[in-house]
Design a protein around this nucleic acid. Structure first.
Length: 490
RNA sequence: CGGGAUGUAGCGUAGCCCGGUAUCGCGCCACAUUUGGGAUGUGGAGGCCGCAGGUUCGAAUCCUGCCAUCCCGACCA
């Protein structure tokens, strides 16, 4: 476990702040808990966006954009929804400032809004208010829309990347003619997320459903993917909600079916956020810095020249240029770092911190021998090889690294997932080891809450395709039909 | 919003108890020597000591208030 990546903000090390981002934007409470995403970190987000967006399009979705401000009255139309978000809303009450005559800029009380605006914490309400005008007939369905946006949730406590007051995300909002179709959509998008997490981020996830207690405000069912971080805590990495007809009823969105019957529309919503950057970091990094899976690394290959003279550098550059051209043909991003302001050793350490998957180093020795030094970030191994078929070799190595990072995380999760059969054992594992704990639960919210109060562990999910198995609840001793997954979580 | 801690250069810090305008390291700038794992030497720049009051001849230091940050809790993608 990296010293830079524990659960405590104070342990996020210097390199982490330098490279990825920092919540240091102002000495003012109004922006407390917001974050700055620096260029390198943002380019990781852009890669995530591109990969996700591609999958959204492949599954028939289109992007759209809805307003940042939501009238308070919209917001309060769905009872459980407003209840769930009421305590974390930023509210706009005025629209103008003025000079008070002494040079101070103050809020102009005359510019008070008749109705307050909520800065969106999520967009269900304003989108469903809009959908009312888009939907009349079954021919208008389904509506498969996604929005890339920022949202604000005024949490009492923030945590860099995992829970910031403002965050970037995507939120999909779909409308369907039947319950079944909406449930299928909910499950489809969960699988899109799971596939993205595992194949692009190299983070293994558990697909599951939330308990009633942990469900999204306004949803009938919440599906989620849960990942395990290196410190043994779980992280909810994405959610997909089956909203039933709740929002359609709240916003009066009806359609005429093929049979000529008027009915409310069925809905889903699903989202992932910049929290994924935190997940990526905490799942893979080590003491030398970030470890990025090649498919998300802003820079996949770096070449560091080691030279004593200008002439030597020119010779190295010539070899490098040829290699760069070959790599670019393969769509592999590469940088030739010939800065003369830093020494090779410094560069090696720097690119390790940044998590660049493959590093090449070439000096006079290699020029003579026709070789090059190749180092991989995931295992930190390096070897000197000939330059024959180098581009192909690198292409294969990047794939191998992608796989290896995933396998390593998967092995870690397997080693930190265990079944327990008593509450004593449960508490012991939780305190000594952490990780996912599979245990029988009687299915009541009361038991769930008691366990949370006593141990801080929550039910992360009821895994999909869960094995049905008779047992007794570790807490109440009542009969249970299946195990659920517990963990302490972020 | 409760409980605890902390604010000194870009970053990390010493000094505070026992008042005399600030220590060290990293980083930064210049020059030289270096360059296959975070170079070395010499010289240099950089600070309203979180903010506002108070006590005092004199405050980083003592007192009061405020602000901010971090940790724990409630809340949560």
């Amino acid at each position: 476990m990296s010293k830079g990546l524990t659960s405590r903000n104070e342990d996020y090390s210097q390199w982490y702040n330098e490279l990825v981002g920092k919540a240091d934007l102002a000495e003012h409470s109004a922006v407390r808990g917001c974050m700055v995403i620096k260029p390198y970190g943002y380019s990781i987000w852009e890669k995530m966006q591109a990969a996700l967006d591609k999958r959204f399009k492949e599954t028939g979705h289109s992007n759209a954009y809805f307003p940042l401000f939501i009238p308070k009255s919209f917001f309060s139309k769905e009872a459980s929804h407003v209840e769930g978000f009421a305590t974390e809303c930023a509210v706009v009450t005025h629209y103008r400032l003025k000079n008070d005559g002494t040079g101070n800029i103050i809020v102009d009380e005359e510019a008070k809004l008749e109705e307050e605006l909520i800065v969106r914490p999520t967009s269900e309400t304003i989108i469903w208010n809009t959908y009312r005008g888009w939907i009349q007939s079954y021919r208008d369905l389904p509506i498969l829309v996604n929005q890339w946006a920022n949202v604000v949730r005024w949490e009492m406590r923030t945590r860099l990347f995992l829970r910031t007051a403002e965050f970037l995300w995507q939120e999909g909002h779909t409308a369907h003619a039947t319950s079944q179709e909406a449930i299928e959509e909910t499950e489809r998008m969960l699988e899109v997320y799971a596939d993205f997490a595992e194949n692009i981020m190299a983070v293994p996830v558990i697909r599951g459903r939330k308990t009633e207690n942990e469900r999204f405000a306004g949803a009938l069912d919440t599906y989620c993917i849960e990942a395990l971080m290196q410190d043994g805590k779980a992280l909810q990495a994405g959610t997909s909600h089956f909203l039933g007809q709740n929002f359609a009823k709240a916003f009066d969105v009806k359609f005429t079916s093929k049979e000529g019957k008027l009915d409310y529309v069925w809905a889903t919503s699903w989202g992932v956020s910049t929290r994924l950057i935190g997940a990526l970091i905490m799942a893979h990094s080590d003491d030398a810095g970030l470890v990025l899976p090649p498919r998300l690394a802003p820079l996949q290959v770096v070449i560091v020249p080691i030279h004593r003279s200008e002439e030597e550098l020119n010779q190295i550059t010539a070899v490098a240029d040829e290699l760069i051209a070959q790599l670019k043909k393969k769509n592999i991003s590469v940088k030739f770092d010939d800065r003369d302001t830093q020494r090779p050793g410094f560069k090696f350490a720097e690119y390790e911190m940044k998590g660049v998957p493959v590093r090449l180093a070439m000096g006079g020795r290699d020029l003579e021998n026709g070789t090059i030094e190749i180092a991989r970030r995931d295992t930190r191994e390096k070897q000197t090889i000939t330059r024959e078929n180098l581009a192909d070799h690198i292409e294969n190595l990047l794939e191998e690294i992608q796989t290896n990072i995933y396998q390593k995380a998967l092995k870690f999760r397997d080693e930190n997932t265990c079944e327990v059969n008593s509450y004593e054992e449960f508490k012991q594992v939780l305190d000594e080891k952490g990780g996912f704990i599979s245990a029988h639960w009687d299915g009541t919210t009361e038991t769930e809450k008691r366990i949370k109060e006593e141990t801080k562990a929550t039910i992360r999910c009821i895994p999909l395709n869960n094995k049905q198995e008779a047992g007794v609840c570790i807490y109440s001793g009542k009969p249970s039909t299946q195990r659920v997954l517990f963990a302490r979580a972020y």
